[in-house]
Design a protein around this nucleic acid. Structure first.
Lengths: 211, 211
DNA sequence: AGATGTATGATACAATTGTTTCATCGTTGT
DNA sequence: ACAACGATGAAACAATTGTATCATACATCT
């Protein structure tokens, strides 16, 4: 078993909250799964909501949100290449193995249906992250590019990627297993989305490459 | 008030279910809003789930899902133009005034988090609709176009449109009111999405226009 | 070793849920 | 006019929920 009861409870509750949502998850379920007494949830976290807050905070911070701050531009490689790698990594995170896939699921849940307790915190993070990528794209866009164009390019790209995550079951119904395995890997989804991004963003490019 | 109690209950429950989801909505709330007795819900619909099923069925059928079947190709106008109108209309439906916006919300809820009672029905509808638009695009795509490319083009377009719907609050936080009013009208969102669609689909076009 | 304070377990509690009951009202058919 | 049946209302029911209680086990420190 894990170290402390707290961490064990958080780790156990995470995937459950992610799968069923806050309201549909019962404290008994979590405690049973974690192998602890019901009282523990109130003893350690005050309430169900307190536990959820901790779960969410822990999830978000460990999910490696957009850390574009640390991404020092590497001028030796074309922007397109670097940008793709960035998005591909992000897409991989979202679709990655069961180990962390539930984290994306939990965050998406808050993104689509904000909870009063975590809504503001998520807003803060998400908005910050989007602004980071917005600034990151200053390297690409011509300064005269209207703001709404930049945002539309960004939303278009992420929207299409998120669609695969949230509507995974739909994909599974429409696209046969073989094709999914072969053509819908995270890298390919990211590649297509980035391709679409550059297709619409091209007219606003800062300057043509000097090759 | 409306005609029968049944219809009144369905009409009242619709927006509530859409806003809060099935689990978070209580029968008392619905009955109070509809001005009927609690017993009515079980008397007329058997159970809360029974009511929800009716609500969903009524919502979906009245939401005018993709009726591409009736769309006879109008060869006198370019495909791009007709396709844009199609998507623009669909986008308008999704974002339209409060009158029917909740319908999209309810359907999106099922799309992202299928309910056992309506999941299969929704699947059936959605898959049918997606296949209709897939076939509709036969007019555009070269026959050699790989299937997964076609699907990616479709998903990319709808994904980005859906993003605006599901993450409306995010948009409201990031984009200032003025810009939203001016540059994020449904038609503009649709236009951008369609533009992105054609940008990535162009290499697979059946044949260049003969102008 | 013994006392003190924290951690844990079993259970109880109050509130809320969906559902049911049953009496009463109103309409309809004869 | 009256019987019969469906519709409605108020209250109760059983189940489930999150939370609180309280006794006890355990560890730590003098």
């Amino acid at each position: 078993m894990s170290a402390t009861i707290q961490t064990r409870m958080i780790e156990t509750a995470g995937p459950i909250f992610a799968q069923k949502g806050f309201a549909a998850t019962t404290v008994r379920e979590i405690c049973a799964a974690a192998g602890v007494n019901q009282a523990a949830i109130n003893y350690y976290f005050g309430s169900k909501e307190g536990l959820y807050k901790e779960v969410f905070a822990s999830t978000y911070s460990s999910f490696a949100p957009f850390h574009y701050e640390v991404l020092e531009p590497d001028w030796s490689r074309p922007f397109e290449e670097r940008f793709y790698e960035l998005i591909a990594q992000r897409t991989r995170d979202i679709f990655e193995t069961e180990l962390i896939a539930w984290k994306a699921q939990l965050i998406f849940r808050e993104l689509h249906d904000p909870t009063p307790s975590c809504g503001e915190k998520l807003q803060e993070y998400i908005i910050r992250d989007y602004n980071v990528i917005y600034r990151y794209l200053d390297e690409y866009f011509d300064p005269s590019t209207p703001e709404h164009i930049r945002w539309k390019c960004i939303f278009s790209m992420f929207g299409s990627i998120f669609f695969y995550k949230k509507c995974g079951w739909l994909l599974r119904k429409i696209i046969l297993e073989d094709m999914r395995q072969e053509s819908f890997k995270p890298e390919q989804i990211a590649s297509f989305a980035v391709q679409a991004f550059f297709a619409v963003a091209a007219p606003y490019r800062l300057q043509p490459p000097k090759e």
